[in-house]
Design a binder for these strands. Structure first.
Lengths: 229, 229
DNA sequence: ATATTTAAGTGTTAAGTTTACACTTCAAAT
DNA sequence: ATTTGAAGTGTAAACTTAACACTTAAATAT
């Protein structure tokens, strides 16, 4: 440190969460209608302020739980935003997190209570402050990660079909994928467990359900999904 | 936001910079010996506090310039660190940035004045607070990026040889690379300009110098160095 | 002048990966 | 028994990556 502590200005430290969900057809984000000033009545990310007794990850967990009722959610710190007038009331730095949740599991009552709503990412309204930038960054981070290694199983229910997984990837990457190649590649990665159970809702034949196996995933990740220059 | 502004606690917002350099053989980081309490006399990253009139990127620029004399340095926000007692004096959140600089260009006098020193990353001393964690994350980020797409030209002088570039990649990735394959791959990427000039210092024959062409790089990056799942 | 030295510079082949592509199977419904 | 419609499956060609060793250029020494 080159400065003295005393010469410095304290700031409010906010957190904002980009909450992704996937409803079998589309990638969605959860937004709330602000019920206080400034920008009351406008749509925004869910957020809050860091408290004395918690670190950022804990604060993100707390904020997410408050709105969705969910614990142990996949949460990743995205970026810190610091434009001087980003919040018109007071100098506020915001640390953005993004969450991947299974859209079937969140608590509907809580969401109603906070006036929250799921929006498909293409149809989301304009957001307050710099939240649109945050969402853009989060999507681009999710897309980047997905193009480099398999991620996003947190967005699916624990049991899912290959079709669902493929559709999820198509949504995130925003491009069509070849069914046979997709299945071959996923199988080659050896990160799924095929169950003895079928989802009969999508066809007469039914389609086998799979579990994501995190242990296998981590083992294979260590061996390297990635490429070398 | 779910909380009221008033219910929140303000914090000190620090920045810490992991400054990478490359001295033709090794990847290095620039550290300073703290000349004030707490932890006076111990090695640390260069840091400072965010000021009222600047955003985080500007603060990182300012802090970096103060120590190295350099402007327009490659700087990227890494992560924010928030463990409650990470700074024993006062609750402080630190946003870490990492910088890639051409080690030949920094201002030696400034560095001496601040008691700063370059350490090879394998021989760096233990650092104060959570700075070791920050360094570990920065290296891992740099390595990850390097394994996915060509980066790090900022660590070399504007004119460099293929050998230097290869050595840099070998240092970052921590593995030996095949000379012919490396050159073929870099050439195929079409991001360098071969100059009519040789570096005669390393051999009797001399080796051609190259320029990194950022325009070409960005054009090719858009076309996609990356892979698809 | 000639020979020696030493890093720079160069290309091919085999192995592996990715892509493109279409028919069969299964279970339910009629 | 037949129809229906999504699920499930394999191969060959194109492309990419990996492994590998000799020639060239310029300076230095003789």
């Amino acid at each position: 440190m080159l400065d003295e502590y005393s010469a410095s200005d304290k700031v409010l430290l906010a957190l904002d969460c980009i909450i992704f969900g996937f409803d079998k057809e589309e990638l969605k984000i959860l937004l709330i209608k602000r019920d206080f000033e400034p920008e009351k009545g406008k749509w925004s990310l869910i957020g809050g302020f860091l408290k004395k007794e918690e670190n950022l990850d804990e604060a993100a967990d707390r904020i997410l739980k408050k709105l969705t009722g969910l614990n142990n959610v996949y949460l990743e710190q995205l970026h810190s935003y610091s434009k001087i007038d980003r919040d018109p009331v007071e100098r506020t730095i915001s640390v953005a997190y993004y969450a991947l949740i299974n859209i079937e599991e969140h608590n509907e009552k809580l969401i109603d209570q906070y006036g929250a709503k799921w929006f498909s990412i293409s149809e989301a309204p304009g957001l307050i402050f710099d939240h649109d930038t945050m969402v853009k960054h989060a999507i681009s981070r999710l897309r980047y990660k997905t193009s480099k290694e398999p991620v996003g199983f947190e967005l699916l229910p624990p049991k899912f079909t290959m079709k669902q997984l493929q559709t999820l990837y198509e949504c995130i990457l925003d491009e069509k994928l070849d069914k046979r190649n997709f299945i071959n590649k996923i199988n080659a990665m050896d990160i799924l467990v095929k169950l003895d159970e079928k989802d009969m809702s999508s066809s007469r034949k039914g389609s086998f359900l799979y579990n994501y196996d995190q242990k296998k995933y981590l083992a294979n990740k260590a061996k390297g999904f990635d490429f070398k220059i």
